[in-house]
Simulated scan of single mutants.
Amino acid sequence: MAFENPGRDEIKKILENAGNIAVVGLSDKTDRTSYMVSQALQNNGYRIIPVNPSVSGEILGEKVYASLKDIPEPVDIVNVFRRSEYTPEVAREAVEIGAHVLWLQLGIVSEEAYEIASKGGLTVIMDRCIKVEDSILIGKR
């Protein structure tokens, strides 16, 4: 069956119920899209958990973790800023930690990651920007 993103109503519910959003590939460089999107989400009241094995310390005032498995608390959405070929491994980790949603950012698509995550019970969103969806569906909190 061909992949299809959830409808806007379902995406809105996902965002309204999101607690922790782990951002895989979040850069500490302020001019990067991952940083700007995460900062905007944070400004709208979401809790961001940075995941980047190349950065230690904090990004946007939050402790950085090397992998999803290192996060010591529940994760609702795994938001991915990695190239498509790296997403199947992220999907496996997202299933392992019991996340609810695997969200691949704009321009990122992986049928394999979709198969892994959906078989693991996760809702999958691909090739969509979480910041744009939040702005359209929710706006300022």
Rank of each mutant, 00 (worst) to 15 (best):
L26I: 10
A99F: 07
E89W: 02
K29S: 13
I49E: 00
H100P: 08
T30I: 11
A18D: 01
P72S: 04
E16Y: 13
V55Y: 03
T87A: 10
V90E: 06
T123A: 09
P88K: 07
S27I: 05
S135P: 03
R83A: 13
S34T: 13
E133V: 04
V23Y: 02
R141F: 13
G57S: 03
A22G: 04
S38Q: 13
I71S: 01
K12N: 14
I77M: 03
P6N: 11
S56A: 13
R32I: 03
N5G: 11
V51M: 02
L26Y: 04
I11S: 04
A117V: 02
R47M: 10
Y46T: 04
M1S: 15
E115M: 14
T33E: 12
N20L: 01
D127A: 03
L137A: 05
R47G: 07
G57Q: 14
E58A: 12
E73C: 03
D9F: 09
W103L: 06
F81G: 00
R141L: 11
S54G: 10
V75I: 10
V101C: 06
A117S: 09
N79L: 13
I108P: 02
S54R: 05
A66I: 05
K13R: 15
V37N: 07
I71C: 00
G19S: 09
Q42K: 14
V124L: 10
L26F: 07
N43I: 00
T87G: 02
E96S: 11
N43V: 00
G107F: 10
K69A: 15
K63R: 14
S56F: 05
L104R: 01
T123N: 11
N44G: 01
A117G: 12
E85P: 13
A40G: 10
E112V: 11
A18K: 02
V37L: 10
A113E: 02
G61E: 06
Q42T: 09
E96N: 04
I97H: 00
E89K: 06
R83K: 11
P50G: 02
E133Q: 10
V80Q: 00
V90C: 07
E111D: 15
R128M: 14
K13S: 15
I49Y: 00
T30L: 10
A117R: 03
G120M: 09
Y35V: 08
E62P: 11
I59Y: 07
V24D: 01
N44W: 09
K12Y: 13
A18H: 05
A91V: 03
I77T: 01
A22R: 01
M1H: 12
K63W: 06
V124R: 12
R83S: 12
V64S: 04
G25K: 00
S67M: 03
Q105R: 03
V109E: 11
V64R: 07
E10R: 13
K12C: 11
V23F: 02
D9C: 10
V90H: 06
E115N: 15
I48M: 02
K29A: 14
S27E: 01
I136H: 04
L102C: 02
N17E: 15
A2E: 12
E96Q: 07
K119P: 06
A99L: 11
